[in-house]
Design a protein around this nucleic acid. Structure first.
Lengths: 197, 197
DNA sequence: CTACCGCTATAACAGTGTTATCGTGGTATC
DNA sequence: GATACCACGATAACACTGTTATAGCGGTAG
């Protein structure tokens, strides 16, 4: 009779853990199946039985990365000042990206050549931004924001992602003070969405 | 006696041309030296004599990409309304990125694994943003912008790059109207930098 | 005409993701 | 408890990548 699935969760978790560590430490190009398998004490075939290939394994890292980002954003407790909450969300976003730049590259940079997120994965990525949508919704209800059908959320996500991405790629001039400039840019963008100043 | 350098500019240009076309058509992963050499009617060794390797060849595409982006931005003729000029610069930026998404990935996404831009290349990338700096400078002199040591330029670059990057990665929800939302986000950001509304 | 050496084609090397083959080991059934 | 079954993983091969050593062609200087 057909033997049921083994559900080797231990090896699966160890592979994911090692893959994440290898990615964070040596970058996306150093994340090879042979090195990963040797690190986890198994063979490359295990990745194919447990995940289905390298892109599928990276997909797990992808959703885990957004789960972690969502956790960091949810940790920003809302106050009764939505504009300030928005700034703190932006700062938390940057801290999350800087905590693991290579993982951020997997999320947005397309660091692993064969991997393209499917619709379910990108939907989960948007779900990580729930705290942002919530702050904007309350601020709009309170009359301090002038949102327009979720346009403000896209703008805010765009500026934080853009600045973080430029910083990680090394495109910003080296003489500027990134943290203060980053916060000033966030405040200006937020001011553009507030009703009266 | 040592033979002088041949300066085979024809083969060099043909390789660059083919590489750009191959990249634009089939993406960064399809850009292999063997395919490129076969396409240009030569061998992979030519890439090493003329450029020094694949990263060095991609570096040429990188600076050419920013040269092209700078040209598109310079084509936006300034008027006497700096705020509106800023919006038009942002629209031109997006059009330039959408005209060749794979090339945009080489510029910012780190699409080619072995390639990291050196200091000279990133300096040339910042030089492409001269029109942006110019519009901000005139607007600040005219008293309509409240720049603060180049912070505004960084914010503007961040939001356009961030939104374009999110769009190209497929992270934006599919039901939104990207062009109008993009322009609204740009206008809000610009409003945050204008002195009085 | 000849010696010289820059440039490129051929082929090999080390590495990658992927897949075919095969043996092992645990489970369900008798 | 014995046995048939097959999911799982280890080994090895395949196709492909960037890179490099070697060898030969070809044009230039003498």
């Amino acid at each position: 009779m057909p033997r049921p699935k083994t559900h080797d969760e231990a090896l699966r978790l160890r592979l994911l853990d090692r893959a994440g560590e290898l990615l964070s430490r040596e970058g996306a190009t150093a994340l090879s199946l042979r090195k990963l398998a040797a690190d986890a004490g198994t063979s490359t075939t295990a990745v194919y039985s447990l995940f289905g290939g390298k892109p599928a394994l990276v997909r797990e890292l992808y959703v885990e990365a957004f789960r972690r980002l969502g956790g960091r954003l949810r940790a920003v407790a809302p106050t009764d000042d939505p504009a300030e909450d928005l700034i703190r969300l932006g700062l938390a976003y940057r801290e999350s990206a800087l905590a693991d730049p290579h993982l951020y590259g997997v999320m947005f940079g397309g660091a692993v050549p064969g991997f393209e997120p499917d619709e379910a994965a990108t939907a989960q990525s948007r779900a990580a931004l729930a705290p942002l949508l919530e702050v904007i919704a309350t601020g709009t209800r309170a009359g301090v924001f002038t949102d327009h059908d979720g346009t403000m959320a896209m703008g805010c996500w765009g500026i934080v992602h853009g600045l973080v991405s430029l910083e990680l790629c090394g495109n910003l001039p080296p003489e500027i003070d990134v943290p203060t400039t980053y916060e000033r840019a966030l405040r200006a963008n937020t001011a553009g969405w507030t009703r009266v100043r």
